[in-house]
Nucleic acid binder design. Structure first.
Lengths: 99, 99
DNA sequence: TGACTTTATGAATGTATGGTAATATACTCA
DNA sequence: TGAGTATATTACCATACATTCATAAAGTCA
């Protein structure tokens, strides 16, 4: 691995922390099937609107999702499907581990 | 993705949380180059022995590392190099994002 | 403009996490 | 066995996080 490819552990940990939450993983899973707005996300997963909004802010802050307002609603989408591959990889790790 | 491949978000979040720490990422990086014992890890990264020992316990609990005592020392190693691939994937995500 | 809808934010609270010092445990060797 | 070494565990503190309620902000539409 080239030096340029070596990431600052602090940055890497920050991204992982942003992903390391059950609710945010659900959000990512839903968004992997297409963009959605906050209210629909909240209702779909049985969570408070404010809770979902805050989690979305966290995902947006690290660049995993972006948002677009359309009228009253704000739609969120995954910036890159690569995040999904990321989790497929995680799943492989865990299957191998029998978790 | 088959249903069997869909992971419980709680479990997935637990694994991610276990990885989402600067010190633990450093440990994984060192161990990706070969097994090491606690004292050497602690010294190598300028951390307290008790701190490193605790982080190793966390990594062991989720099955990312295992350990083997040899005399007074306890050697730790990555259970699977797949963890390293996991991070390569994360790095790709982040490079794409410009993080 | 005012009533309404949707999302974001702030305060408060409980819980989890990370780090350290001190101590306990496990082992070696004489 | 006892002294010495390496690691694990405990208790503690400070900080970060997740959630909720209440409210602010942004937009629509009559």
């Amino acid at each position: 691995m080239r030096t340029k490819d070596r990431l600052d552990y602090k940055v890497q940990a920050r991204l992982l922390r942003a992903l390391a939450n059950e609710t945010r993983l659900k959000i990512i899973d839903v968004l992997s099937r297409g963009e959605e707005h906050v209210g629909a996300l909240a209702e779909g997963m049985g969570a408070e609107q404010s809770t979902v909004s805050k989690h979305l802010a966290i995902l947006r802050a690290i660049g995993v999702v972006d948002d677009e307002r359309r009228g009253n609603e704000v739609y969120y989408r995954l910036v890159t499907p690569c995040v999904v591959n990321f989790f497929s990889c995680a799943i492989d790790v865990m299957k191998e581990r029998g978790i």
